[in-house]
C-alpha cells in the first residue's frame, strides 16, 4: 500500500477524492480510503488534505534521488554569480569574484548552471546529458501534475484535474513539454509514476 488515510484524523471533506488524478480514493459513508491497487503514489492527496490525515505507507516510494550532480571547477570560476542567480533551487552560493560552490544536498541536477556559465566552469558528474528533449505520452499521462511541480525549467504545461468531479471523466488534460524550454535533465522522468515521460 502506498499512501493511506488515517481514519481517526480524516474529517471527510472529500478534497482528496476530488483531486486524485486516478480515482484511487473511495468514499465510505463517513470516511475516505485509498485503493492501493489504483494508487500511483503521486502524493497529491497528502498535499491537499487540510488535516494531514493522508500518511505515506510503508512501501510508499521515496522522492527520487538525483542521479546526476554538478560541481564548479574552482580554477575556472571567475565569481560572476550568474549560476547562483539562475539556479531554481538556490543551491549555489559564494562571494563575487571568488569561486562559487554548489550545495550537493540542494542540487537537483538540472544543469541550468552549466548551460549558462560563460566560462564552462560547471562540470557534470556522471553519465553525459541526453541530446533530445523529453516528451510525454498523451495516452499514458494521468495529469497528476507532479512533473510540472518539479520541472526546474518551467517547461511543462497542462491543467491539473478539474475539481469538478463530474467533468473529470470527460475532460482529459494531458501535460506537454515545451522542447525549446526543456533542459533535458530528466527530473520529470524520475518523478512520473506512470512511465509517461519518454
Amino acid at each position: 500500500m502506498a499512501h493511506y488515510i488515517d481514519g481517526k484524523a480524516c474529517i471527510a471533506c472529500g478534497e482528496c477524492q476530488r483531486r486524485c488524478p486516478v480515482d484511487a480514493i473511495a468514499a465510505g459513508t463517513s470516511r475516505f480510503a485509498i485503493l492501493p491497487e489504483r494508487c500511483i503514489d503521486c502524493g497529491i492527496c497528502a498535499e491537499t488534505c487540510p488535516e494531514g490525515a493522508v500518511r505515506p505507507g510503508e512501501t510508499a516510494r521515496p522522492a527520487p534521488a538525483p542521479r546526476r550532480a554538478y560541481r564548479i571547477l574552482e580554477t575556472a570560476c571567475i565569481g560572476c554569480s550568474l549560476c547562483a542567480r539562475v539556479c531554481p533551487e538556490k543551491a549555489i552560493s559564494g562571494e563575487r569574484k571568488k569561486p562559487y560552490h554548489i550545495d550537493g544536498a540542494k542540487c537537483v541536477g538540472c544543469g541550468i548552471c552549466a548551460d549558462k556559465c560563460p566560462k564552462g566552469a560547471v562540470e557534470r558528474v556522471g553519465p553525459p546529458k541526453r541530446e533530445e528533449p523529453y516528451s510525454i505520452s498523451i495516452d499514458a499521462c494521468v495529469s497528476c501534475g507532479l512533473c510540472t511541480r518539479h520541472c526546474p525549467a518551467g517547461a511543462i504545461t497542462g491543467v491539473e484535474p478539474p475539481l469538478n468531479y463530474e467533468l473529470r471523466d470527460i475532460v482529459r488534460t494531458p501535460f506537454s513539454i515545451d522542447p525549446q524550454k526543456c533542459v533535458r535533465c530528466g527530473i520529470c522522468q524520475d518523478w512520473c509514476r506512470v512511465g509517461a515521460v519518454q
Binding site: 481517526k8 472529500g14 468514499a27 465510505g28 459513508t29 463517513s30 470516511r31 468531479y165 463530474e166
Partner: peptide, 24 residues
C-alpha cells in the same frame, strides 16, 4: 471520544453521487 466507525446509511452509492452533485 471520536470513534473510527462508519455511519449506517440506506444507500452508500447513492449518497456518494447525490452529495457530490449537491456540492457542485
Amino acid at each position: 471520544q471520536r470513534l473510527d466507525r462508519e455511519v449506517e446509511v440506506a444507500d452508500p452509492a447513492a449518497l456518494e453521487e447525490a452529495k457530490e452533485a449537491w456540492f457542485q
